[in-house]
Computed example of a mutant assay.
Amino acid sequence: MPRKTAARAQDDLLADFQSLVSDTEKLLQDTASLAGEQADELRLQINESLKRARDTLRDAEQNLKERGQAAVQATEDYVQEHPWQSVGLAAGIGFLLGLLAARR
């Protein structure tokens, strides 16, 4: 269950960032009617920033996916190799969380 929640949070963050990039692109298109050398320079800078942001987003997304998959695989491998230790660890964590919850 936590894996789905973390993945959903990651997807929401990426969607928000992509929305920000697309909104900025729309703003850039809407300001295309502005004239002047400064406006052209500003549009060029915004375009370059958007390209860097898209590249960074793509790289970050790929990196996060790879790291997440590696963590999931390592956890699954450990649980398969050490099932009783995993059960004991889960029971211990559950016990500690129960104690903390009972104190409140």
Rank of each mutant, 00 (worst) to 15 (best):
H82F: 03
L44I: 04
L44A: 13
R52N: 06
V87K: 04
R103G: 03
Q29V: 13
R43Y: 01
A91C: 03
L42I: 00
Q18V: 11
A9F: 06
W84I: 02
L14D: 10
R54S: 08
T31G: 06
Q69E: 12
L97K: 00
Q69H: 09
R52T: 10
R103W: 05
A70I: 01
L14W: 06
P83F: 02
N63V: 13
E66A: 12
A70M: 06
D40K: 03
Q18C: 10
A7N: 08
L64R: 03
M1A: 15
G94E: 06
F95K: 01
G98T: 01
R103S: 03
A74V: 11
L14Y: 14
L97A: 04
Q29S: 15
L13P: 04
H82W: 01
D16P: 00
A71G: 05
L13G: 15
D77H: 07
A6S: 11
A6H: 07
E37V: 04
Q80Y: 10
D55P: 04
N63C: 07
G98N: 00
Y78D: 01
G88L: 05
R8E: 10
A91Y: 00
A53H: 11
V21N: 05
R67I: 09
R58V: 04
A90E: 05
L13T: 15
G94P: 01
R54E: 03
D23N: 15
